[in-house]
Amino acid sequence: MKSFTVLDLLNLDMQEQNELDLRCLGGRPGLARSITVPDLNRPGLALSGFFDNFGYERIQVFGRGETAYLNKLADQQEFENIERFFSVEVPCVVFTHGLQPTKEFFAEAERTQCPVLQTGLSSSEFAARVIRALTNIFAPTRTLHGVLVEVFGIGILLLGDSGVGKSETALELVERGHRLVADDAVEISCVAGDILIGSGANKVLGHHMEIRGLGIINVTHLFGVGAIRDQKKVQLVIELELWEPEKTYDRIGADERYQEILGVQVPYLEIPVKAGRNIPIIIETAAMNERLKQMGYYSAREFNQSVLKWLETENARARYFQDRDPMSYDDLTSR
């Protein structure tokens, strides 16, 4: 992943319950420092002179306790620990509760070009929010070549070689009232352990699509805001491939197949493409079938169950009539 700097943290556009409410007090040249771990450190021990296992690579949070201690150090004119604190490169220091650093601390930060930030939030609230934000930013991410669409509420990632018709299929789906999330370069990140969130790899380019013969089209302008989505959970992977006569395709669908993306198993279908097959309708059906499965109803399995039950009763009937010889099964039914 690209490095995430302190400036990026300041520029994070989080809203309401996620707002970080950060501003920069000083040490601006250091805003280019990168944050490498999604974690915080309360530097109380370091300020008192104990630097063993000091988590210098983390964001340093100064709450009421730490600030009070800084004031005490200022009163006693002891600045050795502060100098030592800034001698290692911490990404930034954050004062919560809208607190101000002491003059000496601030001067030392400016001298070592360490950014000093301030937030109006309480320490615990800031910690919760910043960790939430950083966990998403540091989530494992992969960019895949494919199209992400939302069909009947199911996020479907269409994969396949160039020219197999992914974009055309997505266009038809959009035309049929479904939504486009991303065309071509889909960025997938794994959040909360096992949830895959897909979005366009480049937010600047928005919802554009390339259709052979037409060129680049703007889906938002053509089909309206109802036809797009910014991000969507990936719940089904469909691989489109040109029909190979020798290859055997799944005819029953009772076995679940999965594709692994970032360590998460996603249901996977392989759909052969050839002239005369209406792929968008097959995909719509796959989406509805997936919803049925999520509700606990597996069409192929239930079908097989009823076939088995039927065969069993047929078998029992045949045996019953066989036992009642000489009247055969055929005689009975022809009567």
């Binding site: 070549h145 160039s162 071509d184 370069a185 366009g200 380019l205 554009h208 680049i216």
Partner: peptide
């Protein structure tokens, strides 16, 4: 890493 046969990928 992007596919060189996809125009949107390259612009992205």
């Amino acid at each position: 890493e992007i596919n060189a046969k996809s125009i949107m990928g390259i612009i992205t």
